[in-house]
Simulated scan of single mutants.
Amino acid sequence: MKLSKKQRQSELKGTIEATPFTTDEELAKQFGVSIQTIRLDRMELSIPELRERIKSVATHEWNETVKALPIEEVIGEVIDLELDKRAISILDIKEEHVFSRNNIARGHHLFAQANSLAVAVIDEDLALTAGADIKFTRPVKLGERVVAKAAVQVEDHKGRTIVNVHSFVDNEEVFAGSFKMYREHDPKERNN
């Protein structure tokens, strides 16, 4: 059953409020209308495009700021951050990220997204990657959205903070990395 414009816009507004990172393409499929119709509905409802929604949510939800590097140097859009605990970023794979002959993302872009997120989550003015153990589990293609999730672990035996990053397309893991991070101060000193 096709929804009236008023019903569709009402449901569209609710869907975007519940899941602000949903793309226009996903919304068009969900409502069975064209992408242009979704864009027009968003404009009439004064709902910004995805990139602006991501920035807005990130700005309102963070009560802490990235210290180890400027936020604009993080590869991808950071959408969640709790320093020394966890972080999430989104990277939409575009033409500039892929090999022209097969439209597969170059691995260094996935690594850069994960590595910069591992640096960003550290609650220090200086955080550097001392080492990394990484694994690519499947190729990522043009047009796919990569969601990287970082989780800070305890220190290893050498006093490095371990940050595990898992990257997904939809719910399928495409990259996993364990980053050994050098930080300026020992996190235990902060509590004493």
Rank of each mutant, 00 (worst) to 15 (best):
I47N: 02
P139A: 13
K29H: 15
L12M: 06
V78R: 07
K55T: 01
V165Y: 05
F21P: 03
F31R: 08
R51Y: 06
D41W: 02
I71M: 05
E25V: 15
K5T: 12
G177R: 01
I38D: 04
R8T: 14
L45C: 04
T22V: 09
N102F: 06
Y182S: 03
D24M: 09
V169M: 06
G14T: 15
D41I: 06
E25L: 11
L81H: 10
D24Y: 09
K29G: 04
A151R: 09
I90C: 06
P70D: 08
L27G: 02
V147T: 15
D156P: 03
V147E: 10
S56N: 10
I104W: 03
F179P: 07
Q9L: 14
E11H: 14
A18K: 08
Y182P: 09
T129A: 02
K6P: 00
H166Y: 13
F168L: 14
S10I: 12
V121P: 01
L81C: 04
T23H: 10
G159E: 04
K135A: 08
M43I: 08
H60E: 13
K135Q: 10
N102Y: 07
V165T: 10
V154K: 14
D186P: 03
E82K: 11
E64W: 05
H157E: 11
Q9C: 11
A176I: 15
H166N: 14
N115H: 13
S56E: 15
R190G: 08
K29I: 12
S34I: 07
S100H: 14
M43F: 10
V121A: 05
V174E: 04
R8D: 06
S10G: 07
R160M: 15
E172W: 07
T37Y: 06
H185L: 02
D186E: 13
L110S: 05
V163D: 00
F21C: 00
I16H: 11
T137Q: 12
E44R: 13
A118T: 05
N191H: 10
K29T: 12
D24F: 02
S167E: 12
N192I: 12
V57K: 11
E73H: 11
I38E: 04
M181F: 14
T37H: 03
V154F: 05
S34E: 02
